[in-house]
Design a protein around this nucleic acid. Structure first.
Lengths: 203, 203, 203, 203
DNA sequence: GATGAATGAGCATTCATTCAT
DNA sequence: AATGAATGAATGCTCATTCAT
C-alpha cells in the first residue's frame, strides 16, 4: 500500500558509509557527510538504520557474513585438504585484501561495535579444521596445542590484515603478494608440501 | 624571562589522555574530558601542546621512542645473537604488551597521526639484524628475501599486538604467554635452537 | 461511496493519546509514539484527526462534554436542592477525580487548546444554580456577589483538581477523601446543613 | 585570571526563559529562541546551566526561594496574629499574583521539574502556624484536622494561582481583587474577625 | 604564564505531515 | 480508504580553540 522500503537505497547508504568510515574514521564522518554525496535526505538514513552506530555495525556484520559464508561454501565443496588450504591462501586471503574498507572498519572501530571475538572464533574453527585435515593427510601429529593454534591463527590473520591496511594508509612498500607469499612459505615449511597456486576466485 | 614549563604537568596530561584515548577513542574524548579528572585548566593544555592532534602524536611518539631506545640499548649491550633474540622475545615483547594503552593508540588512531611506517622500518632494521646474526651463527643462509623479512616482521609484530589488544577488549581467551610461546616456537623451529628463557627485564 | 470511518479506531487513538499526553506531556509525545502501542498506522491518525493539536482538543472537549452532560442530566433528575448538592460533591467530584488523565490534560495543556473559560462559565452557571437553590431552601440571602461566586467556584474547582493531580504526580499525601471531606465541610458550614452522603454514582 | 562568570548574564537568560516558557510552554520554546532575543550565543547558555531542564528548574526554584524567604521574614517581624494573616492575604497573595510567569511555570511544567510537594509542605507549615496562632488568639479550638488543613491550604493556594493564571491566559473576567476578596471573606467568616487591609508590600 | 568563560559551527537525531502506492 | 516511507527544518547540546583578565 505505502511505498516499500528500498533495499537499494539501504545498500547505497551502507557503501558510502563504509567508504567514508574507512577513509576518515567513524567519528570524523558525520551522518550529513554520508548522505551529501549520494543525494539522499538525512531523515531517510533513519528509515533504514536505527542510528549511526547501527550503520557501522551493519557494515561490518554484513560484510563479514558474506565473506564467511562464501569461504565456508567453497571449503565444503573441495574434498582435498591441501587444495582446501590453497583455497584459503590463494583464494580468500586476496579476496579479503581487496575489501580494505571492511578490514579498516573491522580493525579500527569494529571492536567497539561488534562481537569480534565470536567472529574470530568461528574463523578459527573453520581454518583449524583445514589445518588438522592437512596434518592428518601428511601423517603429522599436530604440534600445536589448541590454544597455540588459536593464537597462531589470530596472529597471522590480524597481522596480515593490519599489514595490508598499513600498506594502503602509509605507503609502506609491502604488497599483497608479499604477504601471501610469506604466509604460504610458512605453511609449506610447516607441512613440507608445495601449495598449488590457485587462480583467483570469482566473486 | 619566561617561567619554566612544568614537565610534570605535561606528563600528567599525556598519561590521562593516553588512558582516555585508549578507552574511548580519540574523537570520543574531548580536551575538556582530559583535564576534568586531573584538575588542570583547559587553557594549560595549550601551553604544553599545539592542539588536540599534537597530544596523541606526542603520546605515541614518546611512548614509542622510549620503547625503541631501551630495546636498542639492551641489544647493543648483549653480544650473543641467540641471547639477543631471547631478549627480544622474552624481554621486550612482554614489556610492550604491558602498555596496552600505547598499543591501542598505535593501532587505532596512530596511523592517522604518526609516521607508523618509519617506526616499523626502524624496528625491522633492528630486529632484522638480530635475525641475520642468529642465522649466521647457526651457519644458515637466510631463506627470506628482504621484502619477505619485512612482511614477516610486520605480520608477527602487528598480529601479536592486535591479538593482545583484542584479548583485552573482547575477552578472547588468549594470554600474553600464549602469544609469546607461539612466537618463540616459530623462531626455535626456524633456527633449530632452544631459545633460553630470560627473566623479565627491569624497567 | 466512502467507506465508513471506524469509530472504534478513533476512540483507541484518543485513549492512547490521552494516556501519553497526561503521562509525558503533549510535546513530549510524538504522533509516532501514539500509534506505536496500539498498532495503528501513522497515516490513519490523519483520517480521524486534522492534526496533532486536533487530537488533544478532541480529547479534552469530548471528555469534558461527557462529564458535563451526565452532571447536567443527573441534576435535572433530582428535585431536592440539598440532594442536588450532595450529588455534586459525592457523585461528580469523585467521578472527575477518577479521570486524572483528563484533569492533567485540562490543566497543563488545555488552556492553549480549548476555550477553557467557556467550559468554566457553563459549570459556574450549573453549580451556581445549585448553590442558589440551596440558599433559597435554607432561607438565606446569598452573601456572595456573582463575581465572588465565580471566583469561589473557580478556586474550589481548579484547586481541587490541581490538588489531586499533585497528589498523583508527587506523592503528596492528600487523598481524594480529604479533598471531598474538606469541600463538604465548607458547604455544610456555609449553609448550616448536614450534606447526606451519596453512594458513588454509576458510570 | 580568566573572565569571571557574569551573574548578570545568567539573570538575563533566566528572565527571558521564564517569559517564553510561560508564554509558549517549555517544550515549545527552544534554547535558540531564548538566546535570540537577548543576543547571547547558544553556547553560553551551557556555561550557566547544565541543560534546558536546568533552566526551568532554576527559574522555579529561585523564584520560589525568593518569594518564600521574604514571606518568612515578614511574618517573623510581625507579632500580631491577625496582622500576620493580613500580611499573607493582602501582602503576599498580590505579590505572588504579579509574578504570573512564575505561577505558570510552577503549575504547568513545575511538577515535572521540581519537588513541588516539598515547597507546598513548607508553605503549609508556615501558613498553618499563622492560622493556629489566629485561632488561639480568638480562643477557638481548631476545627480542622492536620490533613484537612493541608488539603484546605493546597486547594486555596493552587486554586487561587490557577484562577489567576486562567484569567490572564483566557480572559476569564476574574480579577486579582476578586480572588483576594473571596479568600479574605472565607477567613473573616471562619474566624469571626475583620481582617485589616494592608497597603501593598514594597518589593 | 595561567585561567576558564566565550564562541558558533557542527553534531546526531526527531517529527508532523504528505503522498506514492 | 489505507499505508508507512519520505522529508528536511529544527532540536538540544558539544567542543577545539581563543583571549580577556
Amino acid at each position: 500500500m505505502a511505498r516499500e522500503r528500498d533495499e537499494g537505497k539501504r545498500k547505497v547508504i551502507l557503501a558510502e558509509a563504509k567508504r567514508l568510515f574507512a577513509e576518515h574514521g567513524f567519528h570524523a564522518t558525520s551522518v550529513q557527510d554520508i548522505v551529501k554525496g549520494i543525494d539522499i535526505p538525512v531523515g531517510s538514513v533513519y528509515t533504514y538504520f536505527e542510528n549511526k552506530d547501527d550503520i557501522i555495525r551493519c557494515a561490518i556484520d554484513e560484510g563479514w557474513a558474506e565473506f564467511y559464508r562464501s569461504l565456508e561454501d567453497a571449503l565444503a565443496a573441495e574434498p582435498s585438504p591441501s587444495l582446501r588450504m590453497s583455497l584459503v591462501v590463494y583464494g580468500f586471503l586476496p579476496r579479503l585484501f581487496k575489501d580494505v574498507e571492511l578490514i579498516s572498519l573491522f580493525l579500527s572501530e569494529g571492536l567497539r561495535f561488534t562481537d569480534l571475538h565470536v567472529k574470530l572464533e568461528s574463523l578459527a574453527r573453520l581454518i583449524g579444521a583445514v589445518v588438522n585435515d592437512l596434518a592428518k593427510e601428511r601423517g603429522m601429529a599436530v604440534a600445536l596445542s589448541p590454544k597455540q593454534a588459536v593464537s597462531a591463527l589470530s596472529i597471522f590473520f590480524l597481522g596480515s590484515l593490519d599489514t595490508i591496511r598499513l600498506s594502503r594508509l602509509t605507503g609502506i612498500p609491502i604488497s599483497e603478494r608479499d604477504v601471501i607469499s610469506f604466509i604460504s612459505l610458512i605453511i609449506e615449511a610447516s607441512f613440507g608440501i608445495r601449495l598449488p597456486e590457485l587462480p583467483p576466485q570469482p566473486r
